[in-house]
Design a protein around this nucleic acid. Structure first.
Lengths: 249, 249
DNA sequence: AATTTGCCTTGATACAGATCAAAGAATCAT
DNA sequence: ATGATTCTTTGATCTGTATCAAGGCAAATT
């Protein structure tokens, strides 16, 4: 899910890989050549079109995977159709849980997605034999858990305006290129409806809050899916989070 | 957090331990004698009175621990005092994250709590050298992640009535003694205010929903902190969850 | 036993965000 | 290009839950 990154998280050195360098960053930062060769030998690629469901809830998990390209969402749906997104997968994020046969949510591609997949039994064997991969996966799970808990605070206690501000700030942090990342044009990736499902709101409320933040000069839209942050300080003020770096995305 | 347990989760055999058997179930199901001895040698006990803060957010983590007795909560607080509980720790649950210096939430004892603590650096050394402990900790983290995601659906999309019904059903499942666990007297452990912080509600709404469920004959209170489930089918109906066992607590 | 204190319940009212509705953009298909 | 479809915006209204307020009960203290 990767919403939250500690500032002092250990830096993972990128590792050369002809086809999908990103994968090794996600799965393993310290594999030796033999292990990398093993990973190579059990990997396959899969691609999904925007809107495709990658995995249905309850479906047996045949593979674990790393996102190479695109954006996928994790979501839960109630009987009557209410849905809640419970995670966002960006490149380098990991799908699947060694030791688990099933997942408890749907995974859907919001744009075209490429996955680097590893056969689950073989991957699990590798995990069993390679302690630092198990450790790395635990760290990934703990990162996701931190992110999930930040999101619980958002869902349970934040106002619509704070939710939207938090969401935008997260996107700004993630997509900032330079050190001084404001004024970059940021891609929204999702529809208003999907954002609403992420934030526990309706699409109309999302739209209204975007309009309000634009009117107040905090952000500016170049088109429906692209915007710039005009006043990053004001934006941070609106998130409701502590001013100090308690929550760092 | 341990809210959700998969029915098909691998059964962890209890391991004999003179002082805190529960700990070994939490940390490790397959340790050999040498490893257990190592664990023994780095453990200490700490106790906390009801209401004590066990760990403040941001505080450096000196130990990791396993809950031996009592109930503790994980919570996040906003500048203006709004708080959201993001986890519940019951006996056998684990506190702390190997590889992490800090935690991002407060840990508070709601009743008297006994922890079995392990010095963090020493524990991490053990994790590094013992692959199956890392695996076990990853499984614990994944269980918590599943629970956190169920809670996200609750916080983002459920009505007050559904939230309360879900909460009660969770308690009922956890504290049921016999196979046919209904009609047991269930202990609420927490105040209305704490429940409200868990469910993203106010204490008045919690109180009103309890009263409503009692009036409708779904539950019955013997006193403020103790109740019985009078109609388990109706209760499950009210949670909004799928009738089939999608979510199993 | 009386008093304090900390929860808890219930009522009245307010309001944020949901819902219902309709008209504008943008994208897609023909 | 043209029409169809899908997404977005904006307005009007409704409603579930928060907020404000007052009193009740039970455990703890004197």
């Amino acid at each position: 899910m990767n919403l939250s990154k500690k500032v002092n998280a250990p830096m993972i050195a990128p590792i050369k890989c002809s086809q999908c360098p990103i994968r090794h960053r996600a799965v393993c930062a310290r594999c030796d050549d033999d292990e990398l060769t093993l990973l190579e030998s059990i990997k396959t690629y899969r691609t999904y079109a925007a809107g495709d469901v990658i995995l249905w809830r309850g479906e047996p998990l045949e593979f674990v995977a790393s996102v190479v390209q695109g954006v996928a969402t994790l979501s839960k749906t109630m009987e009557d159709g209410r849905t809640q997104m419970v995670g966002l997968l960006l490149p380098s994020d990991f799908i699947g849980r060694p030791g688990r046969e099933n997942i408890e949510f749907d995974v859907t591609a919001t744009v075209d997605v490429t996955l680097c997949c590893f056969d689950r039994p073989k991957f699990e064997k590798l995990v069993n034999e390679t302690p630092h991969i198990a450790q790395r996966l635990m760290e990934l799970a703990l990162d996701e858990l931190d992110a999930a808990r930040d999101w619980m605070l958002l869902l349970g206690r934040k106002t619509a305006r704070e939710k939207i501000a938090t969401f935008i700030e997260m996107l700004a942090r993630r997509s900032s290129h330079g050190q001084d990342g404001n004024k970059d044009i940021i891609d929204l990736h999702m529809t208003r409806d999907q954002i609403a499902n992420y934030l526990g709101l309706t699409l109309e409320t999302v739209s209204r809050q975007f309009s309000a933040l634009k009117k107040d000069g905090v952000i500016d839209f170049s088109d429906r899916k692209h915007f710039t942050v005009e006043d990053i300080a004001a934006l941070q003020e609106e998130t409701g989070d502590d001013a100090d770096g308690g929550v760092v995305y």
